[in-house]
Design a protein around this nucleic acid. Sequence first.
DNA 1: CTAATTAGTTTGACTATCAAACAATATAAA
DNA 2: TTTATATTGTTTGATAGTCAAACTAATTAG
Lengths: 135, 135
Amino acid sequence: MRDLSKNLIEFYDKLASWENETVRDSGMTLQQMHTLDVIGSNKGIRMKEITEKLGIVTGTLTVMIDRLTKLELVERVVNANDKRSFYIELTEKGSKLYQEHAHHHDMLAEELTHDLNSEEKEILNKIIEKILRRF
Amino acid sequence: MRDLSKNLIEFYDKLASWENETVRDSGMTLQQMHTLDVIGSNKGIRMKEITEKLGIVTGTLTVMIDRLTKLELVERVVNANDKRSFYIELTEKGSKLYQEHAHHHDMLAEELTHDLNSEEKEILNKIIEKILRRF
DNA sequence: CTAATTAGTTTGACTATCAAACAATATAAA
DNA sequence: TTTATATTGTTTGATAGTCAAACTAATTAG
């Protein structure tokens, strides 16, 4: 049997290329969509927290949020508790796009696991959860 | 139980952030390492074929190969059968780096599956292979 | 032999990224 | 409370990655 390491990497590559393609179709860049996804999945998140989740520095995010704001997908909301920072929120338009993309993810998962029976799906999910717990 | 779709995406994100971090430590960019990986895993590959595997256009790859060449990691080798194209080959230095990175992948797989027993590992591998076969 | 196709390069425009310097605010220490 | 330190986010300057489109050279089809 082929190495689990090689299979994992190939699996990752496939996911990456799928994600890339799907995002491009929506006219966004991968990074923009990823940022939108983090904001959509974390209500009331601040700039700093977003940078940590994305693994980028604040200067990079400033530019990104400027662009997403210009695209009317997100907005900066002042934080009364700490005037240095902002809450980043999705606009209506941003929320719609975020949900569309989440739906794409669901369809991807559907398609990936198409050849698995429901028992296999459950086992796969359990194993992945076990792996995720380790991080 | 949590959605398989969400878990898959989170799993992918974790892999991506691990890969990013690991590659940065080596002083390369993610794209450079990924390109090196494609070249290392496919002896005698041509520019055109690399672009297909990476999902980028030829113009982008020309610049990338120029850079990797300047870093003395790869070289263009003339193709006597088709004088329009080149074989891209790893240099000694490139080959060493490629192998180091492959080793990192092995260690990642080790670490990811640390909490799984050997039966679980085998099941996971079988399921992933089944998924990969679908593409 | 000419026309059409293919492989790769170049150019121009935009996005992503980091490091480092900076401003404004918040927190700790005196 | 006042001062020193730390944190949050912005700006600037440099480098890398990306695409589309125009281009060159070589191959293939008619």
